[in-house]
């Protein structure tokens, strides 16, 4: 891994070269009171005054609604039109937080165990992730409790750490090298010590290894009911989460033609598991809350060597009844 340096004034020049070399750059943009990822045409549009975007960047790899195939009915015959990998743009995801970059691990895992998901893999292959270390954090952030950190490179192709007069550029992957090669002359070797002094402090609030072990035996605990008493089941937590990957499959017919779509879904919804017979394995909000936490901290780690959480804190920021996952996990950690 190369560690390079780029001057502040050169970053926009490099950015323009990147913009010219791909179909789209997706970066955080301020829209009134929120900052969201959007396609950006000019470097100046990119937001800088924020801790975290409201939604995660996962929709670049796993869109909210995605066509699985389209069809045309001709009498009693049906012609299907497959997904075309060439329709997926070559994108650079610019200025995500390390917690968003780390979310590719659980996403890669679920979309590739046994069956390969060609839509996800095509988007993933055509997306280069440029992350930026966090210089600020808020009370909802807990990346350091789930194995991440304000300057963590995992999942990034390149990690930038802004200094007073430029940025330290850690080139993590070959995809990252290709972006640097676009403006090789703008970079110099970086030797001026580590990046820690430029990073936000995110205190660790629990030991995730112990938490995983403890949760393993907590299926019948009363804690799920206690924690979820005020849960509205609105699904906002899953919607903003960078690792939630559950989806629904729906039809969108228009006369004799149409398409089959997949759309984000949430284990927090009662209908998620409802059988046709009326039987619902998870008929209470408490059982759905338990599923959310146990899936992320017990089931995924048991199957995929990854956690289902990167500590971004978005679910807590988005929750309309102020359920704070960091507090809930800490309280589970403290149960004797």
């Amino acid at each position: 891994m190369d560690t390079l340096y780029i001057k502040k004034s050169d970053i926009a020049v490099w950015w323009a070269a990147i913009k010219g070399a791909c179909d789209h750059v997706v970066a955080p943009v301020r829209k009134d009171r929120v900052v969201e990822f959007a396609r950006v045409e000019n470097y100046e549009e990119i937001a800088t005054d924020y801790v975290q975007t409201t939604r995660s960047a996962k929709e670049v790899l796993f869109p909210r609604t995605e066509r699985l195939f389209s069809y045309q009915k001709n009498g009693r015959d049906i012609e299907v039109k497959d997904f075309d990998p060439q329709s997926v743009p070559v994108q650079v995801l610019w200025q995500v937080r390390p917690c968003d970059a780390a979310s590719v691990f659980p996403l890669d895992a679920v979309f590739n165990w046994d069956y390969k998901d060609v839509m996800y893999n095509t988007r993933r292959e055509r997306t280069t992730i440029v992350a930026v270390s966090c210089s600020t954090a808020d009370e909802y952030c807990f990346c350091t409790s789930v194995g991440g950190g304000a300057g963590d490179t995992r999942g990034s192709d390149i990690l930038l750490t802004y200094t007073t007069d430029g940025a330290i550029v850690e080139v993590v992957t070959e995809r990252g090298e290709k972006l640097v090669a676009l403006s090789q002359n703008l970079f110099t070797a970086y030797t001026a010590g580590d990046k820690d002094s430029y990073l936000a402090s995110v205190p660790q609030v629990f030991d995730v290894e112990k938490l995983k072990e403890k949760m393993h035996g907590m299926f019948d605990s009363t804690v799920w009911k206690e924690q979820s008493e005020r849960c509205l089941g609105c699904g906002a937590c899953a919607y903003v989460c960078p690792t939630c990957s559950c989806f629904d499959i729906q039809e969108n017919p228009k006369g004799s033609c149409g398409e089959r779509l997949r759309c984000w879904d949430s284990c927090g919804f009662a209908q998620f598991t409802l059988h046709t017979s009326g039987h619902n394995p998870r008929s209470t909000q408490a059982s759905r809350w338990r599923q959310r936490l146990m899936h992320k901290f017990s089931y995924i780690p048991q199957r995929q060597d990854s956690l289902g959480c990167t500590g971004c804190g978005r679910c807590s920021r988005a929750c309309p009844v102020d359920m704070n996952i960091k507090e809930h996990l800490s309280s589970i950690d403290k149960i004797q």
Partner: peptide
């Protein structure tokens, strides 16, 4: 078992029971 399913291939998440 006849759980509710959508994808059938371990992605959509709804037939998950424990691990």
């Amino acid at each position: 078992l006849e759980n509710r399913m959508k994808c059938g291939v371990g992605k959509c998440g709804r037939c998950n029971v424990g691990k």
